Every structure is written in structure tokens, then in C-alpha cells.
Simulated scan of single mutants.
Amino acid sequence: MVTNQDKITVAIMGCTGSGKTTFVNLVSGSTLRVGDGLESCTTEVQLSIPFELDGRLVELIDTPGFDDTSKSDADILNMIATYLCDTYRTGKKLAGVIYLHRISDFRFGGIATRNFRMFRELCGESTLKNVVIVTTMWSEVTPAKGATREHELATNTKFFKSAIDKQALLLRHDNTLSSAQSVLHQIIHNNPRSLRIQYEVVTQGKDISQTAAGEELGRELAAQTRKFKAEMKALQEQTNAAIKAKDQETRVELEEERAKLRDQMMKAQMDTDKLLSNFKEDNERMEERLKSMEVEHERQRAELEKQLAAAKDRAEQDAISARLNELADGGFFAHLGRAFDSGLKSLGGLFGF
């Protein structure tokens, strides 16, 4: 019989539309919502139903990508960090992380680069031996074209080579159950490891903005701000020239562009502010939830021990002992995932969805 002591947890990450939720549903039998197009449906951290594989109870964490269509990168980082760090405080470590990438992508563009860079900073170098990079969407390319792209991904330092050099695996997923299970076979017997962001926040006591992932996002937001300021200056010069030339039509068009640019600059500033403030508030709320759950767990244990002491019938004693063993065998942690699943839905309100 598989128990909670045999349960392992695996996180699924990657760009929007890479097939994360589809992979989770396929291998676990869950019914998490899947997006039909480029718009993200995974606007929160989601948990699969636990399922058995090779004598282990497996639970998958489905995460939104850093190119989410409805949330900022700061929101996504706060959301993922809050979940990972609070589960880490309960003693739960990840057996591995699966990063999905579309082999059908013609180019490894800026969005994919940013996603993988944030992924690397979240995981840290020492955890890469527990990482599997999985290419998806093979049905959308010819075998020859797919193999060429796969080779480039594996051998180009701009892509996945540096991670593979540190023992990350590169595998294919052809959207079949056997393929998904083969990917998990590479992970489920790993020694669980903490991710860099978990160690930084929980062990070192860093704020999210001080972590490697937070600093990477901060650098990107600062670069965006510098770019926007340069563009704003150029637009102002063009507007001044249009005014001088009495070119009303051009002046109006340039003013519209400046207004759009101002909105982008404000968004970048808001994301920076969120990076500094949201995580602390969300983490405190989640810690309060954990403490209340721990109190309830202890209350149940004490009540069962009291019932056991008063029980005279052997069958009743055995039944109570079994319930106590279930609690000691991870009953609290077994219910924790479901509690987080519902808790994160309400937590979503903090992020504006």
C-alpha cells in the first residue's frame, strides 16, 4: 500500500502554451483548466490529484509562466515563491522540476529566454541535476526539423546547454501517457532538494526582492524603464519638431504614442513596487494559515490519544490507533496540498484576479 511517506512532489514550469496543464492532466488524471490559445488559463498555482507511479504517490504542481497574459512577472514570482516557500517550511521538498518548451517555436525569442532565465534563478545551480527539460508539440514539426532544433537547444550556450552541462536532462514528450510517465521515471526516485529561492527566503531570511530571481526581475524592470525613458525622450523631440513644423496630424499621432509609453512606464514601476511589497504580505497571510492548520492537527492528535486511553474494546483501540498512525504518517501534510489549492484561490484576490 502506497502511503504519504512515499509521496513525492514535482513542479511543472515553462512558457504559456507549452503544454504544462495538459501534461499534468494527462499523467495524473486531473481536470485542471487548459487554455485553447496563447492566453494563459493557469493564473494560479494548481495541484494535481495524487497518483501512483512505480510504487510512489506523485503530486504535480502546475505553475503559470512568466509570460502570463493576465499577470505581471512580479505577481507570478510572488505567487510561485509564496507557495514553494510555505510548503518548504512544512518539510516538503521537490523531487524534481520539469521545464516544458515548445519544439514548434521557430525562434528561442525574448519571452522564452526570460522564462528560462527566471526558471534558472528560481532553481539554482545545485538543483539542476533534478531538472528535466522537456520539448513538446512534436506533432507540429517534421521529425527532421524537430531534431535540428533539439540539437541546437542542447548544444547552444544561449539555450539549454549550460543547464545540461550541470546534469539537467533534455527529453521529448509526444503527448502520450507513456511518454509523460517516462519523463517522470527520471525524477521520482531522486533525492528531494530545496530550490534556491526556498533556501534564500526560508533559511537565509531574504525578502523576495533580495533573492536571485527577484534581483533578476529587478534588473529586467530597470532595463525596461531605461528603454522607455529613452523612447520617451525621442518621442518628445519628434513632437517638438512636429509642433515647429505645424504638422498637427503627426503631433497627434506622437502624443498617442507617448501616452501608451507612459502607461508602460507606470506598469514597470508598479511591478517594481509589487516586487518589494507583495511577497511579505502574502507570505504573512499564508504563515497564519499554516499555523492554524498545525493547531488543528495537534488538537486532533490530542483528542485521539484521549479516546485511546479511554477505549476498552480491542477493535476500538485498533481503529483509534490506525487514525493516530495516519496523522503521524503525514495526515497533516496530506491535507495541506488541498488546503493550499483552495487557499490560493482566495489568495488570488491579493493579486487582482
Rank of each mutant, 00 (worst) to 15 (best):
L57R: 15
T203L: 08
D6L: 07
Q224L: 07
A319M: 13
L32D: 00
G96P: 00
Q307C: 13
N156C: 11
T157K: 08
G17H: 01
K280Y: 04
V201C: 03
M137T: 15
S182K: 11
L324V: 05
G65N: 01
G37Q: 08
F279I: 01
E256I: 07
L336D: 11
A309H: 13
K246I: 11
V202C: 02
T113V: 13
L94V: 00
D329M: 09
E287V: 10
N4R: 08
E216C: 08
L217W: 00
A212H: 11
A315P: 07
H173A: 03
D105C: 08
G331F: 09
Y88I: 02
C123Q: 00
Q181D: 05
P64H: 11
V45F: 00
L276A: 15
M79D: 09
E255Q: 15
G349P: 04
T127S: 12
L60H: 10
K20V: 04
A11L: 09
A74E: 06
L275F: 10
A311H: 08
T250S: 14
V134L: 05
E326Y: 13
K93H: 09
A144Y: 09
T225F: 02
E216F: 05
S178A: 02
L177F: 08
E281Q: 05
V34P: 01
T22C: 11
P143A: 13
Q269S: 02
V132A: 05
A241D: 08
R323V: 09
Y99T: 02
K145G: 11
I111T: 15
F51T: 02
L169S: 15
Y99K: 03
N130Q: 12
S162G: 07
K161A: 12
A11Q: 12
V97A: 08
H189Y: 09
R251F: 03
Q210N: 09
L290A: 09
K20S: 04
L276K: 15
S126P: 04
L169N: 15
L254S: 08
R338M: 07
T176G: 06
D54G: 08
D329H: 10
A319R: 14
K145M: 14
T21K: 01
P50I: 04
G37W: 06
K7P: 04
N325D: 13
E220Q: 10
T142S: 15
N191E: 11
V201F: 03
P143N: 13
K345N: 04
A241T: 07
V34T: 07
D329W: 04
L275K: 02
D6H: 14
L38P: 07
F332E: 14
D6M: 12
D54P: 03
G37D: 08
M286P: 00
L153T: 00
L60R: 12
E296K: 03
A328S: 14
S342L: 09
T87M: 09
S70W: 12
A112C: 10
F116E: 08
A81Q: 01
L350M: 09
A163F: 03
M79K: 11
